[in-house]
Every structure is written in structure tokens, then in C-alpha cells.
Design a protein around this nucleic acid. Sequence first.
DNA 1: CAGGTTTTGTACTGACCCATCCAATACTTG
DNA 2: CAAGTATTGGATGGGTCAGTACAAAACCTG
Lengths: 211, 211
Amino acid sequence: MHHAFQNGYGTDMARPRTFDEDRALDAAMRAFWANGYEATSTQDLCEATGLGRSSIYNTFTSKHDLFRRALTRYIEIMSAPQAEILEDAGRSGMERIQALFARIVNSEYEYREDDEASIGCLTVNTVVELARRDPEAAALVERDLGTRLGLLRIALEAGQRDGTITAERDTDALARFINATIGGMRVSAQAGAGRAALESIADTALVALRP
Amino acid sequence: MHHAFQNGYGTDMARPRTFDEDRALDAAMRAFWANGYEATSTQDLCEATGLGRSSIYNTFTSKHDLFRRALTRYIEIMSAPQAEILEDAGRSGMERIQALFARIVNSEYEYREDDEASIGCLTVNTVVELARRDPEAAALVERDLGTRLGLLRIALEAGQRDGTITAERDTDALARFINATIGGMRVSAQAGAGRAALESIADTALVALRP
DNA sequence: CAGGTTTTGTACTGACCCATCCAATACTTG
DNA sequence: CAAGTATTGGATGGGTCAGTACAAAACCTG
């Protein structure tokens, strides 16, 4: 008996899938992101992905597992460009933080249905809705928090060296402050803040980083 | 035929309630606060309040209506002491903001089951989980946001007059910044930040307000 | 204590929940 | 083209959801 290989080519295949697993995962991620875990039913996931129940359960074993993968993917997608910004040796420390904030503001508009309210950030949404009672989700976001704080520290240390970031506070505290500011911007966006308001928040936060 | 008066004494009564409506509302508020709207079932509400289904539906007509009242009550309970702090003429503008932050930090520990993670802030939780698809909830938190921004502006204007708050930025922007910082602290707390981390975030934010 | 009225517990409703089962389908390999 | 295998759609299952119906209980008023 041959193993399943869950469509991992290289074994004798039978009927191939008619959908792209990554695209389906993206669609599911969007659904969870926009509506939250509890409010997204498996039926919703079928409609969002265009798949039937069998295909979903055959591919992603359970709603919870699908969410875990969706959250993992979200974190991957979002982390990479942020890392690029924060580790960009071509910019000063302060410029990196500024660029990060700009990206956060833009992201609130990139992933939004027209004239709907912002859907915020899946990580923040997960912390608020789920982290207390879902240890797996909590572990994922905690891990993500750790890496983001690390990246922030890298940029902040660069800023302290090049003189664009205050050296009066340790980078750990500053990193947590920036992270909290981003969370606050995300919540503000979901509460209806417009682009100007978000930019103003970011701009004000930068004052605290000045030397 | 006499009207119901929903146990509003003053009419001929029949069987009186064996529970206190306010206490029940408090218990329901706690349940929603800790677990969110979707994840709190009517059964959970029965257990949290100690009431039977009949009593709950007789008193609060529906889960959604009970949530609306719980959120309203939460906002009432939290607003009053914050207003007192922000309008306290005995303190400088900066001191008022400092005191507000201190209160936020403390509140993350007052309402927490022992060694459990923080349950955050019902307003923030509602914005994130519900505001996009529940217009009533959105209206309540938006209204609350308006009054809080107003109170913050009062303190900030006082601070600009007494010289403890920078006059380089208008109070509207500063108020939004502080509000976002509070939201960020709330999310950070739910993500596992301890007291020291929260105090550090608040302390760093204050730097941006200095003249 | 009797009449009237509200509360309360229990059983119940119909809808939806997540997940599984199974037969029909469609493809690859030999 | 035949054999074998994975995917797919649709039906199905047990459980929980919010909310209701109803009768028994509990109390006030007169």
C-alpha cells in the first residue's frame, strides 16, 4: 500500500487536485482575518475558498488546524517585508522605524474592502479574541512577538549608533513601545481612524525616540 | 390590565425576583469581557450569572441585548474614574496623563483571575471582535471614543497652559496618540506583557508629550 | 386566605455547528 | 485500456446554538 503523500508529487498519483492549496489557504486566512475565528463557520470557509467540505477537511484536517496554518502564513507574509525594512542598512535607525510605521498605515488600506472599516491585523485580532483560550495560537503570536521585538531592537541599536535614536532608554523598552504603538494604531484603525489620524499617531510616537 | 413595569416597584407586584439585576449584569459583563461575544454561549451566561434561561430572557430579551447593556455598563464604570483623573484641576496636565496610565496598568491586574492572562479591555475587545459587523456595538464604542478623546484634550490643554505638555502639537493629535498608546498597552497585556513592560511603554509614551 | 400576576425551572424548537461517511468521479500508472 | 488511488460532492450525524412555551411556584394585595 502506497502512502498518501498528501499530493506531494513523486509517488504514483491518482486524481489530482483541482485547486491550489496556497490560494485556498490565502482565502481562508482572509476570512479569519476579516471575521475572526468563532464567527467564521466551516461553511464560510467553503464559500471563501470555493472548495467543498471534503476538500477542506481532506487538506486541512480541521477548522482549528486550518486556522493555525492561516495564522502561520499571515505571520510569514507580514514578517518578511518588515524584516527587510528594519534591517535595511541603507537607512538610519530612525528612518527604518518611520518606514515601518508607513508600511503599517498602508497595510490598513491595502487589505480592505472598499469603504468598509479596516480588518486590522490578524495577529492582534488573534491575541484579543483567542490567545487566552487557545495555547497553540498564543504560542504562535508569542513567537512572532519575539521575532518582531528582535527586529525592532536591531533597528533601534543601529539608530543609537548613528545618532538618530535616543540612547537614554534601552532598546528593549523602546522596542516594546513601538510594538505597542503599532497595536494601538491597529485598534484605532478598526475603531474608524483614517489615514491622517494614523499618520499623526505614528509621527507623535517618533518624538519619543528622538535623541 | 396592569402593565409589567419590569419589577419597577410602585405597582401591584406578584412574585419578586430572587436576584439582583445589576449583579447579574456585572456577571454577564465579566463573561463577555473574558471570553468575547461569540465564545460566550447563553448557557455560559446562565452559569456566570447563576440565573436560569427564563430569568435571563425575561430580564434581558436576548443575548445581543444583554451584551449591549453589558458594554454600556462597562463604559459607564470605566469612564467615571478616568474623567475624574483627567479633569482633576489639582494636578498638572502631565500628571493627569501619568495618573491615567497608572490606572490603566493597575486595571490590567484588578480584573484578572489569578495567574491567568489579562482579559484586556472590553471596549478594545469589542472593537476588534465585533465592531465591523455589529453597528450597535460600533456606535457604543465610537461614542465612548469621542468622550475619551474629549477628556484627554481637556487634560492636554491644561498641560499646555501650565507648561507640562508640549505646545508644538495640537491636542487633538496628542489625544489620539495617547488613546492609541492605551490600546497598545491593552493588546500588549493580553499578549503577555507584565507590569514592568506596561509601565515602560507608558513612560516612553510620556516622552512624546514633553514640552 | 383567595385572586391575580410575575418569576422560575424544564422541556422543547428549529437552525446551525463541526466533522465524517460514502459513492461517484477523474486522474496516473502499468 | 484496466487497475488502483486520491479527490470530490452530497448526504448524514451528533451536538450545541439562541430563543420559546408552559406549567408550577412564589409572592403581593385585598
